[in-house]
Design a protein around this nucleic acid. Structure first.
Lengths: 197, 197
DNA sequence: ACCTGAACACCGTTCAAGT
DNA sequence: ACCTGAACACCGTTCAAGT
């Protein structure tokens, strides 16, 4: 057994890991830098060397969330057929699944308040994800399974429907009678609105 | 001029009013019960007589938000024609307009964490609002302008699209190329997915 | 019933000083 | 470069006591 060294070694990484655990288990309100430091066994001032403010840590968390979401979406496309319906279904379930499994993190990712510098990076990370939806629609158009139109204008309503459903489901604001077939109905409605002619 | 009386008179109301102002001007993070009390000129302990915790005040704020949203939606339907397209357009713009004008409040309304007792009241208030979308779709169906199907299953994807677009717009996560005709495209996609046959 | 004053156990952040 | 220890200016909440 080794006694704790003066230098932690990888405090930044451990802060992020513990923070995300707290986020998942107790919610964003319960996230405190001091408590994180206490759990890790480091002084209250130590985190500030790695994240210049609490908001900076939250921003880093959100950034990681977007990266994992993009990764999960990419994974969903790898083991699925080529038809638009199949690919949309996979992407939709990946997104909603990620959101439900990481509710507090997703809340953070799309929260209103981010430091302006972080917003740039966050928007870029969000872009790398929405790029995939964009690709999905474009491929559907090339196959003649999705109506024509500027891809970004066809994609936005699809994006909005998924994001909105996930948000409603996570916040518990879905009327019970809507939750039953919720995601199925949303996917069906997206296919309907994307249909050619 | 009257000197401040021992009893404020309507502290609960003034707390809510000032809290909403702070929310709008400085965001949820800047909302402090102590500062509210200071602004109003009352002791730090005074708010606790009217809201048993900070969360209780946030819940009350969210509740008021849902009531005003329902009111704004109802108003949007009063001065508009009878066709589904017109009524949907009005309701959509009322919702997105409310969201953009009250970003931090809407964030609160749909936030993940609410005290369990409040969640009941909040869901009821949200229900009174979604009831209106529900009515909108039902009326469209009776006019033959909206496809058939269980109204709650036709309504959910509409609800999701609006909620999602508003959320994306407010969080600044809308890719620039999508923001241009954003709401127009979302409304058009809703009309397309609702079209009969 | 409504509010004050003081206290308690926390925060995030800063900064000299240590290793 | 990385961390400690102590300090500063805050929090939300509770509770006896005042009016």
């Amino acid at each position: 057994m080794k006694n704790r060294p003066y230098h932690h070694g990888d405090l930044a990484t451990e802060l992020l890991a513990r923070a995300e655990q707290t986020l998942r288990e107790k919610g964003a309100a319960a996230l405190s830098l001091r408590e994180l430091a206490r759990e890790i066994g480091v002084s209250p001032a130590a985190p500030s060397r790695h994240f210049k403010s609490k908001q900076a840590l939250l921003d880093a968390l959100a950034l990681g969330g977007f990266e994992r979401l993009a990764e999960a979406t990419a994974a969903s496309q790898r083991e699925v057929g080529e038809s638009f319906a199949e690919r949309l279904d996979a992407a939709a379930r990946a997104y909603v699944g990620f959101t439900l499994a990481n509710a507090a993190l997703v809340d953070l990712m799309f929260s209103v308040k981010h430091s302006p510098e972080a917003s740039e990076a966050l928007r870029a990370a969000a872009g790398r994800w929405s790029e995939q939806l964009f690709e999905l629609i474009g491929a559907g158009q090339r196959r003649g399974e999705v109506r024509e139109g500027a891809p970004e204008r066809v994609t936005l309503p699809v994006f909005a429907a998924l994001h909105g459903y996930a948000g409603l489901a996570v916040s518990g604001m879905l009327p019970a009678e809507m939750a039953e077939h919720g995601l199925d109905d949303v996917i069906a409605s997206i296919l309907r609105q994307c249909r050619p002619e």
